[in-house]
Every structure is written in C-alpha cells, then in structure tokens.
Design a protein around this nucleic acid. Structure first.
Lengths: 224, 224
DNA sequence: GTCCGAACCAATTCAGGATTGGTTTGCTTA
DNA sequence: TAAGCAAACCAATCCTGAATTGGTTCGGAC
C-alpha cells in the first residue's frame, strides 16, 4: 500500500493538474472520480484541494464543481439575483450604510439650483395628498441627493440599490385616500438633511440621513 | 348568440378586472381560461387585451402570462453606461464613500473564519512576488471584506463598483518582475483595517479603510 | 368579412432526478 | 491512538422533459 501522506497526495494532484492542461477556469473531474483515478481516498484528496484553494490555484462551489484559476466575479449587476438573495432588512441595512455617505458628498458638491430643487421637492412631499404621491416625491428627493453628489458612479449605485428596494418591497404600496399626517416623522428629518446640504455641512448631512433611515427602519419593524 | 363586438368584449374584460380585485402587478388567468369564462373567442379577447396593453393597464409576456400594472423595470443594471459616464477620479470618490461603510458592517458581522481568511489574504498580498499577484490578492481582500458584511446587497453593490473600476482602469496592470517593496504603504494600512475588523471596532475599520483609499488616491495622482 | 376553434410555435416555468462539494459516522489500519 | 477510508447523508446546483402561456396561422362557419 502506498503512503498517502498529505505531501504525496498534494504532489500527485499537482502532477495531474500539470498533465491535464486544463484551460484557465477549466473544470476538474468530480472529487469522487478524481479520488479514484489518483488512487486516493476522498478525504485525503479534499485536504489537498483545500490547500490548492488556499493558494488560489483552484476554487470550488457546491453543486458546480472545482475549477482552476480565481473565482470569477459577476460582471453584470443582475438585479434579479440580488433580489432573490436579499430581504427587506438587508435592504435597509444597505441604505443605512450607503445613503448617508451619498448625502455627505451631496453637501460638498451640490449646485445652488440643485439645493433649490431639493427644497421644492421636500415641500411637495409634505403637501402630498396621498401616500402614493408622498412616496413618489420621497423617491425623487433621495435620488436628487444622489444627483447632487456630482458623482455619476455613486448615482448609478444608488439607482441599483433603489431598483432592488422597489423589487423587494413590491406590492406594499399604500394607495389609501389618507394623506401623511402633518407631523409625519420624515418631514422634520428631510428638513434637517436638506438644510445640512444647503449649509455644506457634510458630517451633519450624513448624520441626518442616517437618523432618517434608522427612523424609517424602526417604523418598518412596527408595521409587522 | 351574443354580439361579441370589440366594444362589448372590452367592457366585459374591464368588468372582470374590476370584479377580480387583483393586486397591483397581479396575474390574470391564461387567455384560454379567460376566454372561456367570459364566453368569448380567444382572438376577440386578445384584441381587447391588446387595447388594455396599449393603455398601460396590463402587460404580457410569452410563457409568463398577463399582469396588471406597468411592466417592471429592467432587471440588469447597465455597467457599460456607468463606465462611459464616469472617470477614474469619480471611481476613487465612490470607493472612498462606499467601502469604509462596508468595512464598518464587516467589523460588526464577520465570522471568525472570515477574519482568519482576511488575515491570510493580507499576508499573501504582502508576500506577492509580482504586482499583478499583489493586485489579485488585494482585490480578494477587498471583496472578502464585502462578504464579511453578511449583507448580500452591499456585496452586490461592491461587485458592481469593482466591475466599473476594472473597466475604467483597464490596461494599467503592472506585470513587471518587480515586486511590491516590503514597506509598501498599503501593507500597514491593510493591517489596520483587518485588525479593526478583528477587534469588532466598526468606527476604526471605517476610518482605516478611508485612510487606505485616500492614500491609494494620492499615489494615483502622483503617477500621472 | 369576421369570428371561432384548433393546431402549432417559442419563451418560460415547473418538477423530478442526477450531480457535486461539504459533513458526519463508523470501521480499518498502521 | 490517530489517520485514512468508505459509505451515507445534506444542500446547492444543474439538467432534462413536461406543462404552461402569449403569439401566430389556417380552415371553416355564420
């Protein structure tokens, strides 16, 4: 019987990889087959594969197989894929992490006309006669903050985030004849955000946005 | 025999929609079933449905069905569009705004095994024999921080950001035989980030990541 | 000529089984 | 005692074929 020490298995596996001449990203045989053809137990083979994976020579995934090279990263922002993996709580978490920093950039870069538009948008949200219209102006306000950052990449990421948010919270639209109460918590919060941006105070803008989103998150939990 | 004129079929279909009380985005019965239950031929029904589709009341897709409301938005964010509108400076700006917050989440949520992997990844970057391999491990490190946030949406946004970054800075890969010097500024910075995450110190992780990216930004300017 | 029924087409969904990496268990062996 | 091995099981993924569904065509009936 051969000594199937860690080292011998590993070297035999390296030999196989060199001989097989797999294309970059090519697929190795399944562990069960490979173990048999290398005349090695599966657990020993897996130990060797783990080493190769740590070295970045191969990568593995349940149900897919083992492949040479680096694990590829998705080059397409497949929103459907994100929607299926995520949930409303994660969406709020991402918003709380991301949007305050966008607000900070907006405070530093917004043009005067954009600040005026922010104020007008805020007022329209306060005066909205239905929840649906309120949400429409609320969306517009948040995107306007993204535009004010003057960074098209940040804006693109924000749009992606919002697309996922819409898909995840789909069907929860409130179309009641009721209008948001005049003391709705968001109104004062929106005001703080917009004023911080107008004052060019990045830290205050980020802080105000974070408080606003946390408040929204709290109300989300209450509604369940 | 009923007169199944265009108008009568259309009004009967509208009646059905009003009665059915479908949720926004809800699905109508298949054309075959609906035609039978409305006592109408399929071709007549399709004509009426075409009218409703033109009005934006419903939308249809082969194999999926007929749904109320507007056709949902594109599920794939166009990375090419972002690439064309942005530039390397904006990319750095977006990274500086975004990645520190991801690091903060990672500090709060990383699993012990992820922290171990972060450390190993950092060491591999330090020992990389070429710049190309260094960047490979550097990329892996930054994505691992995204994974450690345990927020698949943040990870998705990070991947999108990286896809744009790769596309924008394409062709600047350094593949010289030279290796990163042992006192490369990033090494200490990486260490501070990873240690802050290991210590569960979100603020320190965000701060260390921000300093790191600003330092990278500074070197980017110098190279021009 | 218009509408109906039937058949067919192509895109999509769905369900079941097969495949695959990951994990546990118990036996064997050195 | 410690390690390797085989077997079984798990969960994610892939694969395949059938069923579903909107889109289209054709012949016949009124």
């Amino acid at each position: 019987m051969l000594e199937n020490t860690d080292a011998t298995v590993l070297s035999r596996l390296r030999d196989f990889l060199a001989t097989a001449q797999l294309a970059e990203g090519g697929r190795l045989p399944p562990e069960r087959d490979l173990a048999e053809s290398l005349d090695v137990g599966r657990s020993a083979l897996r130990k060797a594969l783990a080493t190769l994976q740590a070295e970045g020579v191969v990568w593995r995934h349940v149900g897919k197989g083992t492949f040479t090279g680096e694990r590829p990263i998705d080059t397409v922002a497949d929103i459907n894929a994100m929607v299926q993996r995520t949930n409303p709580l994660e969406v709020m978490g991402a918003r709380i992490a991301f949007e305050p920093e966008v607000a900070r950039c907006a405070a530093l870069n917004a043009t005067p006309s954009q600040i005026a538009e922010l104020r007008s948008c805020m007022l329209k949200a306060q005066q909205a006669p239905t929840w649906r219209l309120y949400e429409q102006w609320d969306n517009r306000l948040h995107r306007l903050i993204g535009e004010s950052s003057q960074n098209s990449l940040l804006l693109g990421l924000l749009d992606t985030l919002n697309a996922v948010r819409r898909a995840v919270t789909w069907g929860r639209l409130r179309d009641t004849p009721v209008r948001p109460p005049p003391d709705h918590h968001s109104f004062a919060e929106h005001e703080r955000i917009v004023e911080a941006i107008a004052n060019r105070d990045g830290a205050a803008a980020a802080d105000a946005m974070r408080r606003h989103l946390r408040s929204v998150e709290g109300h989300m939990r209450d509604m369940r």
